[in-house]
Amino acid sequence: MAWKIALAGIGKIARDQHVPSIAASRDFDLAATVTRHEGVDGVENHADIEAMLAARPDIEVVSLCLPPVPRFEYAAAAIKAGRHVMLEKPPGATLAECHALEAMARNAGVSIYATWHSREAASVEAARNWLADKRLKSLKITWLEDVRRWHPGQEWIWEPGGLGVFDPGINALSILTRILPTPVHLAGATLKFPENRQTPIAADLAFRHPDGAEVSAVFDWRKEGDQFWNIEAETDRGTMELSDGGANLSIDGAMVEASDVALEGEYPNLYMRMAEILRTGGIDMDLSPMVHVADAFLLGKREIVAPFHE
């Protein structure tokens, strides 16, 4: 029997990934949406979360796809109403509110899942397995994309809580925290803020590895032309490259895992994982990628760069 699910926040990622993933799932039926704008054809829509929760006590799960800042109130309302909650990345605007949501879910006896879609990219697990028994010498993340292409007109990303370049950068950090056998922590950062914006457009990060490996990341939202989402690692027994956001894996220059479609399988896998959590009554609130982002804002040197205009 499929769970009835409501989808709150019907923007680009919801239409491109969540709606088709739910439609293809054997575990979920999309029973309602929550948005003040255009909903999904053929699906009942409500203007706010409280109205949906009151009207549809039969809906067991709420998947939240709206921006991070308003997400806490929606999640808290759903948990208070006894519904299970699925959170688009990042799971909240602050670490404290994410911890609060987990505590609320435990007290209410419902499941909550902080999703990290990039961990479900086709070659991430193969990379994790390859690195597991090797000594890391260096690892570099290069995450370069064009904000105008991927986030057109989304002003919320430039406001406090919107994360700026860390909105895609946290995807890279979710992979990093999945594939490394030994955790790292941030040692320093430089954050580049357009003079007319509240969040960074680029960032350089340096991490401290317990065994002395050099671990770094470069995020930039100003990349025109070809886009790059790569992770390169050198070990005592060869080199590895995860490219295209984790879709493709090369070992010592030879391709060993490949996927032709960006995001292929990532969101369907998230809903499969949510179904597993529901069946076991579990909670999955791994916040390790978000810790690195928070540390970057704490440690980061601030540089002002040219203004950004859409």
Rank of each mutant, 00 (worst) to 15 (best):
D48E: 15
I49D: 00
I49Q: 07
E50A: 15
L53H: 05
A54E: 10
A54D: 07
A55T: 06
R56E: 04
R56L: 05
P57G: 01
P57H: 02
P57I: 08
D58Q: 06
D58M: 13
D58P: 10
I59G: 00
I59Q: 01
I59N: 01
E60Y: 02
E60K: 15
V61H: 02
L64K: 04
L64V: 15
C65G: 09
L66H: 06
P67F: 05
P67W: 08
P68H: 14
P68Y: 09
P68N: 13
P70N: 10
P70H: 04
F72M: 09
Y74S: 09
Y74D: 02
Y74H: 14
A75M: 06
A75V: 11
A76Q: 12
A77K: 13
A77D: 00
K80V: 13
A81K: 11
H84A: 06
V85I: 11
M86I: 06
M86H: 10
L87F: 06
L87V: 15
E88L: 13
E88T: 11
K89C: 02
K89G: 02
K89P: 03
P90Y: 07
P90K: 04
P91E: 03
P91C: 08
G92R: 13
G92E: 03
A93R: 13
T94Y: 00
T94K: 04
T94S: 09
T94Q: 00
T94E: 00
A96G: 05
A96N: 05
E97P: 14
C98H: 03
C98F: 03
H99L: 10
H99V: 12
L101G: 00
L101T: 07
E102R: 15
A103R: 14
A103Y: 01
A103V: 10
A105S: 14
N107C: 06
A108W: 10
V110H: 02
I112L: 09
I112C: 01
A114L: 07
A114C: 12
A114I: 15
T115E: 14
T115Q: 13
W116Q: 15
S118Q: 08
R119Q: 12
E120K: 15
A121M: 11
A121Y: 04
A121K: 04
A121W: 07
A122Y: 15
S123Q: 08
S123C: 15
V124Q: 03
V124K: 05
E125C: 01
E125N: 12
E125V: 10
A126T: 12
A126G: 10
A127I: 10
A127H: 12
N129L: 12
N129H: 09
N129A: 14
N129M: 08
L131T: 09
L131N: 03
D133I: 10
D133H: 10
K134T: 04
K134L: 11
K134M: 01
R135T: 13
L136P: 03
L136H: 07
K137G: 06
K137L: 13
L139W: 02
K140R: 14
I141E: 00
L144K: 06
L144A: 05
E145A: 09
D146E: 03
V147R: 15
V147Y: 06
R148L: 03
W150V: 09
H151P: 00
G153H: 07
Q154T: 15
Q154A: 11
E155M: 09
W158Q: 07
E159T: 15
E159F: 04
P160D: 03
P160A: 07
G161D: 03
G161E: 04
G161C: 05
G161W: 08
G162A: 11
G162N: 11
L163S: 11
L163T: 03
G164I: 12
G164A: 07
